Amino acid sequence: MVAKQSVSVSLITLGDPNTLTGGYRYHRRMAELAPRNGARLRFASFPERRFPLAARDADEVWRTVREQAPDVVVLDSIAAGFLATSRTWPEVPVAAVLHQPPGGIDHGPLRTRVQAALDRSVYRRVSRLMVASEHLAEELARQGFPDTVVVPPGRDVAGFPDPVVVPPTDVRGDNRAALLCVANWLPRKGILELLDAVALLPEGAARLHLVGDEHADAAYRTAILRRLNRDELAGRVVRHGRLPGDEVARLYRDCDVFVLPSTREPYGTVYGEAMAAGLPVVGWRAGNLPHLARHDREGRYAEVGDVPALAAELCALIDDAGLRARLGAAARERALTFPTWEDSARTFFATLREIS
């Protein structure tokens, strides 16, 4: 098959493509960069309904795709399972882009099992699987899908605020260091365990800054607020909630250590952002973090669930400014080797041209 020089793409997703999460941001960046790669990307969305009711809209989604008349269709992993029972399938090639493993993440065990079976049945029908990280590629290989193309999220070239123009803020208070965690309040993000670790730190060691959507999971929010109200965390934690990008960048610049003990991070864009800001990163030895930052070179790990060990890794960085500087400099240097969005878009569209 001769690869086409230009390509028209329909990307099937779920809900509003402008949603402010990593996977949606990835797709918007691909759409923005499509013209530079001789391509055009348009969205066709399933309406958001309780799982698995969105599957009833498959015919309408395919109708939208036919009207767009693409050369190739891309299935977002968040919506792929809804097409498992569809009798309609386009005559043009179909690829999938995976930001999560079959079955998704943040779901209960029953939904995960059902969705995983649906997802895998769809992935067996597509011409190419693109995954967002080496970690996902390894997980897919274990599930019988060894031939994947890794197309990670890109890093933004824009720098962090100039301290002359935007003066540093007092993020430490009376403490020796400032810790930063950027994460929505979801159980897999490990925020409760992080608070337990911070409670184990000596008095005056660090102030923790929490950035992210506090309403992502109602039950988890209640548990976090209850934990924050305990005396041992009084004055140690600052809640920022959701912030615009420039304010998050300012915190990356001003804080000393980034910490996110997530148990399941398919890529971990925030780790890369923190590294680009020159912060050592701390978390569990889990998900994609070991592919981004190496232990004692750009960051430090603890085994999943070992809260005292997590506190010890934080203490080591809090107490040793030289260690922070060494790991932070290495983190910034390594972050510069990560692909830019331009790099990722070139790989993304080149992969689609190969099958179109």
Results as ranks from 00 to 15, higher is better:
Ser356Tyr: 00
Glu48Cys: 08
Glu67Gln: 15
Ala69Met: 10
Thr64Val: 05
Phe349Gln: 02
Ala117Ile: 07
Cys181Tyr: 13
Arg346Ala: 11
Gly190His: 12
Ala286Phe: 00
Glu333Cys: 06
Ala44His: 03
Gly22Trp: 06
Arg155Gln: 13
Trp185Asn: 00
Arg346Gln: 09
Val122Ile: 12
Thr19His: 00
Gly235His: 06
Val259Ser: 00
Glu139Gln: 14
Arg50Tyr: 08
Glu232Cys: 05
Pro163Ile: 07
Val151Ile: 15
Val126Gly: 11
Leu129Ser: 02
Tyr271Leu: 09
Ala183Tyr: 03
Phe145Ile: 06
Pro266Phe: 04
Gly287Val: 13
Ser8Thr: 14
Asp162Met: 09
Asp254His: 04
Ala206Tyr: 11
Leu33Phe: 05
Arg242Val: 14
Gly235Leu: 00
Pro244Asp: 13
Thr13Leu: 15
Met275Ile: 11
Gly144Trp: 07
Val149Cys: 02
Glu214Pro: 04
Leu14Phe: 02
Met1Pro: 13
Asp156Gln: 14
Ile318Arg: 01
Val259His: 04
Arg142Thr: 10
Ala276Phe: 09
Thr351Trp: 03
Glu247Phe: 00
Ala31Leu: 06
Ala199Asn: 07
Gly278Arg: 01
Ser8Lys: 15
Leu352Trp: 01
Ala274Lys: 06
Val304Trp: 09
Arg50Glu: 14
Ser8Pro: 00
Gly108His: 10
Pro102Cys: 11
Leu292Arg: 08
Ala69Gln: 13
Pro168Lys: 07
Ser133Arg: 10
Ala205Trp: 09
Val122Glu: 08
Thr351Pro: 02
Val151Leu: 11
Leu233Pro: 07
Leu200Thr: 01
Ala55Gln: 14
Val198Leu: 11
Gln143Met: 13
Pro153Cys: 14
Leu180Phe: 02
Ala205Asp: 13
Thr222Met: 01
Leu33Lys: 01
Gly305Leu: 07
Gly38Met: 09
Arg324Leu: 10
Gly287Asp: 02
Arg120Met: 15
Glu273Tyr: 05
Ala95Ile: 14
Val97Gly: 00
Ala311His: 07
Leu323Phe: 03
Cys255Lys: 05
His240Ser: 08
Ala330Asn: 15
Asn229Ser: 13
Ala311Gly: 10
Arg172Asn: 08
Glu134Ser: 06
Gly103Val: 01
Met275Thr: 05
Glu333Pro: 02
His291Thr: 01
Ser133Glu: 14
Arg125Lys: 15
Val166Ala: 13
Gly15Tyr: 07
Leu336Glu: 15
